[in-house]
């Protein structure tokens, strides 16, 4: 890979992240005085509020606060949660693996399944398979994720009680082996991961289908067929690699909505990830935690875009020579 190209992309990503960090600071100042929320004790006296202000450094000039904030962020000190009194970094660090597990599983299955269905539908365009796949995917695409989540709980945890309705492990369970624990987590993962998959599936399918339909009308597809190549080889070796290109870009852009979906789905399934942490922090007006999760989500989106650029570079030789 071209080192100059890569360093340019990384520099752009770092710059974007810096912007987000700065923006995050002012965003929370605009949202109001945090001490109003801190001093929730009834009848807090103005003296007590002033004392709190002093404790948090909120009586200092804005630019001084900003300098502190930038310094702390650089040292990865994101403050203390007002709810749990723990470091925000620790809170995020605990929640991150769960979110990665859920989002990773959901995205992986949705990408593979959506792409595969998109190829099938495009090669059978206008036929019954296409109609059925299009109908199914438009339905899941149009359904809100909270509705899908509740429906899944209703069917698989209430009517047919075969799967747990929430949490990541059975509470209070003792496991004899690591394998038993993994199995228990997997069982808890099925429903939220299904909800995640169904939420993302539609867009991957629709993008892949339309991209494939476009590519299949290209001249080179006719040429490949004319050379006596089997149709499935024409599709898999020549049409699919070309049709994947827009999918890579679009899925990176769509990563923001994955984050939004994670907040809803984790809340519904009481999944102890970043989404639920964010939701709790919103409820508690826990600004330091919110600031921290905003930062980590932004970091995720920026990283996803950087990875998509790198993947695109690898997949499309036309980018490499520019």
């Amino acid at each position: 890979m071209n080192a100059r190209w890569l360093s340019g992309k990384v520099a752009a990503a770092v710059f974007t992240l810096l912007f987000v960090i700065v923006f995050n600071f002012f965003l929370f100042r605009v949202m109001g005085d945090p001490t109003e929320q801190l001093a929730r004790l009834p009848r807090a006296t103005p003296e007590e509020i002033d004392k709190l202000r002093g404790q948090y450094g909120l009586d200092r000039p804005l630019m001084g606060q900003f300098a502190d904030y930038m310094g702390d962020t650089a040292r990865l000190d994101l403050g203390t949660s007002q709810r749990s009194r723990r470091d925000v970094v620790d809170e995020i660090w605990d929640a991150l693996p769960w979110t990665l597990l859920l989002v990773g599983t959901g995205t992986l299955i949705a990408t593979l399944l959506g792409t595969w269905m998109g190829v099938k539908a495009a090669t059978r365009r206008g036929k019954k398979t296409d109609d059925a796949l299009l109908g199914f995917n438009l339905f899941t695409y149009a359904s809100p994720e909270y509705w899908i989540g509740i429906l899944l709980i209703l069917v698989f945890a209430v009517w047919l009680p075969i799967l747990p309705s929430g949490l990541q492990v059975t509470p209070g369970a003792q496991f004899n082996s690591a394998f038993a624990e993994i199995l228990d987590v997997a069982k808890h993962l099925i429903l939220p991961a299904t909800a995640m998959t169904l939420m993302l599936l539609g867009q991957y399918f629709l993008i892949m289908r339309s991209s494939m339909v476009d590519i299949l009308t290209e001249d080179f597809i006719t040429v490949k067929r004319a050379t006596g190549m089997r149709w499935d080889r024409v599709v898999n070796r020549h049409a699919v690699p070309n049709a994947l290109l827009p999918l890579v870009t679009l899925s990176a852009i769509q990563f923001g909505s994955v984050v939004a979906g994670a907040i809803t789905i984790e809340t519904i399934f009481s999944w102890p990830g970043l989404g639920e942490l964010t939701f709790q922090a919103i409820n508690d007006k826990d600004f330091p935690v919110l600031q921290g999760t905003f930062l980590i989500f932004s970091f995720g989106v920026i990283l996803a875009n950087l990875l998509a650029d790198c993947l695109y570079f690898y997949l499309d030789p036309r980018v490499q020579s520019k």
Binding site: E218, D219, F220, T222, V223, K224, A226, T227, H238, P241, N242, L245, L315, D316, P317, R318
Partner: peptide, 14 residues
């Protein structure tokens, strides 16, 4: 065999 009309798009770009 055949030489096709559109030379520009007759080869797989990737």
């Amino acid at each position: 065999s055949m030489v096709f009309q559109g030379a520009m798009n007759s080869l797989d770009p990737v």
